[in-house]
């Protein structure tokens, strides 16, 4: 890693990647499992961030994380309510909630676009102060976040194996079967979206304390980033058993952050940064298709070559007989 990627860069990429993996897990649940495109992610992430920041300022950094999760659950509940009770198209329901959340987020932050929590205790500072060692001081956020994500992955995996979890999976996989199995799809959709948005909210709460600031535009584009991470994860780790798919989603998020770090390291100008992000996302999405296309081309080339060789041989023989 030496000169190109310094320890600091790796560390930051890991930290932010781990926080982003919560949002990726959220989309894994809503998009991959429930087959719902939940576009309220951007607003919900900012909501978690705003709520987390305000409670942290009040002096309760741990409570802040739970508050951020609770806020996410409420947001998810409203999105689900629009879809299940009022029959709003899932994409539209997400957009409506996302739009509404902008004002709510501003209100949470006392109608200012920025809130700073510099100087307040955060979960990172609390954990960092356990040990005075320099190594611990630097790497404790990575360990803390890694452990947290691992626990959440296990919980999610365990949950998806319960009867309720299986019902949620079935809801996204075969709506007709769900109704025939005495499961209320409105209920499973609501539970699924609440859990998904709780994770998004938690991600927001963690990033607020990590960056020591909350910004009204923090969540913009988050849904794209999480979707890209999800696809990177599924491209690399493939269609594996459930637990590996969950870990793959997290791996995708971390990898995405690494790609961004590399782009930053290559001195991409700030103006071009959005374009670079979009390119990374596009490449990630194109990858599976490109892979199969290249494989097909190669196979066709080999087949054509074999046929040509055979054809030449056959015509040669034919010529000999004439």
């Amino acid at each position: 890693m030496g000169g190109f990627l310094t320890a600091g860069i790796v560390q930051t990429a890991l930290e932010v990647g781990l926080i982003y993996s919560l949002v990726t897990l959220s989309l894994f649940l809503s998009f991959s499992i429930l087959d719902i495109c939940d576009l309220s992610t951007d607003g919900c992430y900012t909501l978690g961030c705003a709520v987390g920041a305000m409670v942290t300022i009040a002096g309760h950094p741990i409570l802040a994380l739970f508050a951020a999760m609770a806020a996410g659950i409420v947001s998810g509940f409203v999105t689900a309510l629009l879809q299940t009770k009022f029959g709003v198209e899932s994409i539209l329901a997400g957009i409506i909630v996302n739009t509404g959340l902008y004002t709510i987020n501003l209100a949470v932050m006392g109608f200012s676009a920025d809130v700073s929590i510099v100087g307040k205790d955060t979960v990172y500072s609390l954990i960092g102060s356990i040990n005075k060692g320099v190594f611990w001081k630097g790497w404790s956020p990575v360990f803390f976040l890694g452990a947290l994500i691992l626990v959440i992955c296990f919980l999610l995996y365990w949950f998806l194996g319960t009867r309720l979890g299986l019902s949620i999976r079935a809801t996204g996989d075969s709506p007709a079967m769900v109704k025939a199995s005495s499961i209320n799809p409105a209920f499973t959709t609501t539970v699924g979206l609440c859990i998904a948005n709780a994770m998004t909210g938690l991600g927001g709460g963690l990033i607020a304390q990590y960056q020591k600031t909350a910004n009204i535009n923090l969540g913009t584009g988050m849904v794209t980033v999480a979707l890209a991470s999800l696809i990177i994860g599924e491209t690399i780790f493939g269609r594996l058993p459930m637990f590996w798919r969950i870990l793959g989603a997290c791996g995708g998020a971390v990898l995405y952050r690494f790609l961004i770090s590399i782009a930053l390291r290559l001195n991409v100008p700030t103006e071009a940064f959005k374009l670079v992000s979009a390119l990374i996302v596009a490449i990630a999405i194109i990858m599976p298709q490109a892979k199969s296309l290249i494989q097909f081309r190669l196979r066709r080339k080999a087949l054509m070559a074999a046929r040509a060789a055979k054809g030449a041989g056959a015509s040669g023989n034919g010529g000999g007989k004439e």
């Binding site: 009867r163 299986l166 019902s167 999976r169 079935a170 996989d173 075969s174 007709a176 079967m177 769900v178 025939a180 199995s181 005495s182 499961i183």
Partner: peptide, 22 residues
């Protein structure tokens, strides 16, 4: 229509078996 393609046979059956315990 009656089955969930991405879930295993066992998982499908256990979802159907939900009708047993309310």
């Amino acid at each position: 229509m009656g089955t969930a393609p991405h879930m295993t046979i066992e998982e499908n059956l256990s979802v159907a078996y939900l009708r047993a315990n309310t």
